[in-house]
C-alpha cells in the first residue's frame, strides 16, 4: 500500500482498473471480473436444465415430445387430482345417494355440497338445452320460474331427471298431445276458435266472437288434460294455459301451430348416465334456483 505522492485525491489511490484491451473511439472497456461463484451458478443451471429435460417432457420429436423419465404429464396430474377429489368426496357422495332428497334441509353441509355438486352436473349435462343460467329456451323449460310441467318439489324434479320425459324407457314421464290439425281431429275454424279461447284464458288480447265458440271446442277436446279452466294437470305434464308462462310461445301463430301439430318435448333418462348422487345433487341444484316448491 504505497499511497504516498498520489494520495491527495482519494479516488485515485486504488490501482487503476484493468481493461479488456478493447478500445472504441477512445472508450475503453474496463474488466470488472464477475465473481466466480456466479459462473458456477451458471454451470449448475445448465446441468440442472439438462437433467430436467431428461426427467420431464421436453424435447419436441416428430411424434409429440419426449415423455421424460419420471413419466410426468399435466393431463396425468389432473387425472390424479380428480381421483383424489373423488376419494375425498366418496363418503358424502354415498350419503347423498342414500338420502331421501326431500329430507335434506337447506343450510346443512349435505345440502350445500349437493347444491355445488349439482351445479357441476348441470354445467356438464343440462345447460345444452336448459341454458347455462337455467333460463331455458323455446321448447326447453325455464327452471328458474315457478311453473312446473311435471311438478316442482325436489323429489318430483329428481324423478324427472332420473327417468326423463317422453323417452323410450318404461319409467319415463309420458304424455302425448293429439295433432288436432294434422290428423284432422278438428276443423280449421274450430282451431281458430279454440286458439282465441286460450288467448283469453291467459289474459292476452283475443277475438270475443271466436272465443265463445272456442270455449265449447276447449271443453270437448282440451279440458280432459288441461282442465276445465285450463290450469293444466301435472300428472299428465299438461301445461297451465292460464298463466304468463309459455314453453313454445303464447302468440296467436304459435298457438295455432301447437294445436295443429302438437308438441313432443323429450328429455333423456339421466339415471342411465349419472350416479344416484349426481341425480340427487342436480335435483337439489335445480330446486334451489328460485322455483322449487
Amino acid at each position: 500500500m504505497s499511497n504516498q505522492g498520489k494520495a491527495k485525491d482519494p479516488q485515485k489511490t486504488k490501482d487503476q482498473v484493468e481493461t479488456t484491451g478493447h478500445s472504441w473511439d477512445g472508450i475503453e472497456e474496463y474488466n470488472n471480473p464477475l465473481p466466480r461463484w456466479w459462473l458456477w451458478t451458471f454451470y449448475l443451471c445448465i446441468i440442472w436444465g439438462v437433467g430436467y429435460s431428461i426427467a420431464y417432457p421436453a424435447w419436441p420429436m416428430l411424434k409429440g415430445a419426449t415423455t421424460g423419465l419420471l413419466g410426468y404429464s399435466t393431463r396425468g396430474e389432473v387425472a390424479e387430482d380428480i381421483k383424489s377429489f373423488d376419494a375425498m368426496n366418496a363418503e358424502i357422495n354415498a350419503e347423498l345417494a342414500a338420502a331421501d332428497v326431500t329430507q335434506i334441509a337447506p343450510n346443512t353441509p349435505l345440502h350445500d355440497y349437493a347444491t355445488n355438486a349439482g351445479a357441476a352436473v348441470f354445467r356438464a349435462q343440462c345447460l345444452q338445452c336448459h341454458g347455462s343460467g337455467a333460463a331455458g329456451a323455446k321448447g326447453y323449460p325455464n327452471l328458474l320460474d315457478n311453473d312446473w310441467l311435471w311438478g316442482g318439489t325436489v323429489d318430483e324434479i329428481a324423478y324427472s331427471i332420473q327417468h326423463g320425459i317422453r323417452n323410450e324407457t318404461d319409467d319415463a314421464r309420458y304424455s302425448e298431445m293429439p295433432r288436432f290439425g294434422v290428423d284432422e281431429l278438428l276443423e280449421p275454424e274450430q282451431i281458430d276458435q279454440v286458439v282465441e279461447f286460450v288467448l283469453q284464458l291467459s289474459g292476452s288480447e283475443f277475438d270475443a266472437g271466436l272465443s265463445i265458440a272456442g270455449a265449447q271446442v276447449f271443453a270437448d277436446n282440451c279440458s280432459a288434460c288441461h282442465g276445465a279452466k285450463g290450469l293444466g294437470d301435472r300428472d299428465q305434464g299438461a301445461p297451465n294455459l292460464a298463466d304468463a308462462i309459455w314453453l313454445y310461445g303464447g302468440d296467436r301463430e304459435t298457438l295455432h301451430e301447437t294445436v295443429s301439430e302438437a308438441r313432443f318435448g323429450v328429455m333423456p333418462a339421466w339415471g342411465q348416465r349419472l350416479t344416484q348422487a349426481e341425480v340427487n345433487a342436480a335435483a337439489i341444484y335445480v330446486h334451489t334456483r328460485g322455483g322449487g316448491e
Binding site: G133, A135, L144, D145, N146, G203, D243, I245, G290
Partner: peptide
Amino acid sequence: PVRNPTFVTLSDGSIRNI
C-alpha cells in the same frame, strides 16, 4: 346481479330478479 337471465317471469306475470 344475475344477468343470465336478467329477469324471470313468474306464472302470475310478476317479474323476479336474482
